[in-house]
Design a protein around this nucleic acid. Sequence first.
DNA 1: ATGGGGATCGTCT
DNA 2: GACGATCCCCATC
Length: 184
Amino acid sequence: MNNLETLLSQDAVTVAEQLIGYRIYVKESNGSLTGGTIIETEAYHQDDAASHSYKGETPRNSVMFGPAGHVYVYFTYGRHYCMNIVTGTRDRGEGVLLRALRPETNIDIMQYRRGNRAIHDLTNGPAKLCQALAVTKENNGAFINGEKFVLLPPHSSKQQRSKATPRIGIKENKQYLWRFISIE
DNA sequence: ATGGGGATCGTCT
DNA sequence: GACGATCCCCATC
C-alpha cells in the first residue's frame, strides 16, 4: 500500500482534515496541470443522514461504495457538479467533498471556464471548483491519480492547520464539525 | 454586509 | 411530484 492509499483508506473525517494543504490538478490536453491547493473540505459517512450514501447504494452514489481514491461526481440543482474523493475501505459509502481550492496553476484557463471572473471567485465553492477544473459526470469514478486527476501532498511535510466547523447546505447532522477550513 | 429568490433537471418517492 | 452536499443576481440595510 503506498502513501496515498494509506491516507485515503482512513475514515472520511480524518481524511477531510488531512487533505487540507494537498494539491489537486486536472491534466489539460497539452499535459499542463490546472488547479491548486485544497483549502476547504467536508466529510460524509454512510451512517450520516446528510450523506448521499445514507440510504444505501443507488446508481447515482455507487462510486461511494467502491474503493478509496476514486472520484464521486454528482449533478445537483439542475446545473452544478460537485466532486468527492472516496475514502475508507470498500463498501463503506463515505467520501470527502472538495469545497474550495487556492488557485495556483493555469489560472487563465480556470478564469476562462468561470466566465473570466476574479481570481478569488474561481474555486471558492464545490461547484465552482468543478467548473474551473472542467469536472463533469464524465469523470465520475475516475481515479484521483490517473488520466484526469493528480493529487500531491503539501510542499511542507508538517500537518497543515485547519479549523472544524458545521457543514454547509445540509439539514441533518448539523451538529457534527465535519467541515475543515485551512487557517494561516 | 446580508438575505431572498430564481434557475433547472436528475434522482428517488 | 418534490427537492437538492449550489450559484448568481438583485434588493435592502
